[in-house]
């Protein structure tokens, strides 16, 4: 992060103005109340406040350093007392050295300089403290704004995927075709019809309910996806093959809801719906190196002329992962002419 005072014109202007006012007072007190010459008064005001002006800008990097690492308030305060003390002492003697070389012959001024060191120290600490507080306020305000923005982004992403859910998840095509299959089974195989009807009901219930929670266990998601695939399996018969390799310890991991379902819908839409050959949808979930790796893939016939989707579904999943985990490397697509694979990594918290 860059220094907020020098990078913003308005801030910098206020900073300069404040120091000009301070310098003017400094000069006026010395020249009119203490009776020093204009030259000495101006030099004293300029050198001490000028140094402070420069230090004030540099102090930003100390503030940044002490906020970056996760420290308690007491520790930060102690840090600033030490660094602030050292800096102000340096400032005090640096200024004195400069002024006493410049005006070494003015005995009354040198005496004044030596006597006022304690006051100058207090004055320096005060200004230093004010500058630091301003920096922390700016920081706090920035973080606050960012947090608000992030929150609204997250909210928007969830809303969008909920909307997608309404639009695509209970996709009317899927629903009516399933009902048509049930209608057919009622004649040929009533037991199977009942089984499919119940599965469809459970799938719909889960889908309607899960808007309530932002996070769900992988077990719940996978259970529901199995229902969905069972239904599609009844519709498509041998044209759809389901394979899965999911280790048990993965199932309790919490994942953002609605994040996997669209991938299966895509596999059905672009794989099974557009292929006359059998399409295999494979799910692999394993935990390793503090990540849960979820891979969902499907093959498709090389000459597949499937309509290319707009990729909104995939983009949405990617964005939700990025917002949720604040990382951009959790989503990957691997595709070649006969296979489409999406890999999602969920960080496991130690």
């Amino acid at each position: 992060m860059l220094n907020p005072i020098i990078t913003q014109k308005k801030h910098f202007l206020v900073y300069i103005m404040s120091f000009l006012v301070i310098m003017t007072f400094h000069f006026a007190i010395m020249a009119f109340f203490l009776g020093f010459t204009f030259l000495i008064s101006a030099a004293d005001a300029l050198i001490y406040n000028g140094l402070l002006f420069l230090l004030g800008i540099g102090v930003w990097y100390i503030v940044r350093f002490f906020t970056l690492s996760e420290q308690t308030y007491q520790m930060i305060l102690a840090d600033h007392l030490v660094t602030g003390g050292i800096i102000i002492l340096g400032w005090l003697f640096g200024g004195m050295l400069l002024l006493s070389t410049l005006f070494g012959k003015e005995a009354s001024y040198i005496e004044f300089l030596n006597n006022s060191l304690a006051w100058r120290f207090v004055y320096g600490i005060l200004i230093y403290a004010v500058i630091i507080m301003v920096y922390y306020l700016i920081n706090y305000y920035r973080n606050y704004q960012e947090k608000l923005l992030e929150e609204s982004r997250l909210k928007q992403a969830v809303q969008e995927s909920e909307l997608n859910l309404l639009k695509s998840q209970i996709n009317p095509h899927f629903l009516f075709n399933s009902l048509n299959s049930i209608n057919s089974l009622i004649i040929a195989n009533p037991d199977k019809a009942r089984e499919m009807l119940l599965e469809l009901s459970e799938f719909l219930r889960y889908t309607v309910r899960r808007n309530e929670k932002e996070q769900v266990s992988l077990r719940d998601e996978i259970d529901n996806i199995r229902k969905y695939l069972d239904i599609e399996k009844i519709r498509f018969g041998d044209r759809l093959v389901i394979e899965e390799d999911i280790s048990d310890e993965c199932l309790k991991v919490m994942i953002p809801n609605m994040i996997l379902q669209p991938l299966y819908e895509n596999a059905i839409k672009h794989g099974v719906n557009e292929s006359t050959d059998a399409v295999t949808i494979t799910t692999i979930c394993h935990a390793e190196n503090n990540y849960l790796n979820i891979s969902i893939s499907n093959n498709y016939s090389p000459g597949n002329l499937s309509r290319k989707g707009k990729g909104i579904g995939l983009e949405n999943i990617k964005r939700r992962l990025a917002l949720h985990y604040k990382r951009h490397d959790l989503f990957e697509i691997r595709r070649n002419s006969f296979n489409f694979e999406v890999i999602i990594k969920i960080p496991l918290f130690s």
Binding site: N183, S184, A188
Partner: peptide, 12 residues
């Protein structure tokens, strides 16, 4: 129709 069950309904 690409779905067997859908064809069966019509036959029935």
């Amino acid at each position: 129709d690409d779905e067997e069950l859908a064809r069966k309904v019509i036959v029935k």
